[in-house]
């Protein structure tokens, strides 16, 4: 493992040393091409040398100071553009969309609330109608009941009257029968008495017989 890492490190160092001269050469060529601008040439050569040094010494590219200026510059450009785009275009738009939706949702909710209220009203009306119908029905039932009751009462009265009439008639008839029965019994008794008196050779005094029979019957009765 150890040797392996060493190998890796050495190969990395090799590639770096290869790269560094190439950089220096390129910088020199650039400087030669521009010629007149001596200051620039010096600067370029310095930068190249610096880059070579950094690449050689630092295995960590993050610590290569020569690239910092470049990265920072482009980062600031990117952030500036991004900030501008976000704050001017994207964020207001998304905020507007979200608040629009919020508005639509609250509007819909209010509408729903209204519908709910309407439904409640309808329900109340329905309940009222139902209650009315109930009382109406109760009234009708009561009326009907009363009517039936009166009818029933008249019928009962009628029946009662009839019954009592019939009872009276029967009583009368019974009394008549009883009267006729007593009359029959008297006439039979008188006749029997008269016959008995005659059979004994007496003379039948009708008035005396009547009185005797009546007295007997009264006593018997």
């Amino acid at each position: 493992m150890f040797s392996l890492l060493q190998q890796a490190a050495s190969t990395a160092a090799e590639t770096d040393t290869h790269a560094a001269p190439a950089n220096a050469e390129a910088a020199a060529a650039a400087a030669a091409g521009q010629g007149a601008d001596a200051a620039h040439a010096v600067e370029a050569a310095g930068a190249a040398a610096h880059a070579g040094e950094a690449a050689q010494s630092a295995g960590m590219p993050q610590l290569d100071v020569s690239t910092f200026g470049n990265q920072i510059f482009w980062l600031l450009v990117t952030l500036a553009v991004l900030y501008w785009v976000l704050s001017k275009v994207a964020l207001p738009r998304i905020g507007a969309i979200i608040s629009d939706r919020q508005g639509a949702i609250t509007g819909d909710l209010m509408q729903a609330e209204e519908f709910k209220k309407k439904a409640k009203d309808a329900e109340a009306a329905y309940g009222k109608a139902l209650a009315d119908a109930r009382t109406e029905a109760g009234k009708i039932i009561a009326a009907q009941k009363a009517e039936i009751q009166t009818e029933l009462n008249t019928a009962i009265d009628k029946a009662d009257a009839e019954i009592s009439a019939r009872a009276g008639e029967s009583e009368k008839r019974i009394a008549a029968i009883r009267d006729s029965a007593t009359a029959d019994a008297r006439s039979v008794a008188r006749e029997v008495t008269a016959e008995l008196v005659r059979a004994f050779g007496g003379k039948a005094d009708e008035a005396a017989i009547d009185a005797a029979v009546d007295a007997r019957l009264k006593g018997a009765a």
């Binding site: 950089n23 390129a26 910088a27 650039a30 370029a44 930068a47 190249a48 470049n70 920072i72 510059f73």
Partner: peptide, 10 residues
Amino acid sequence: DGPIYWYTPT
């Protein structure tokens, strides 16, 4: 693969 200046596109 020239040197990296502050404006070089990398």
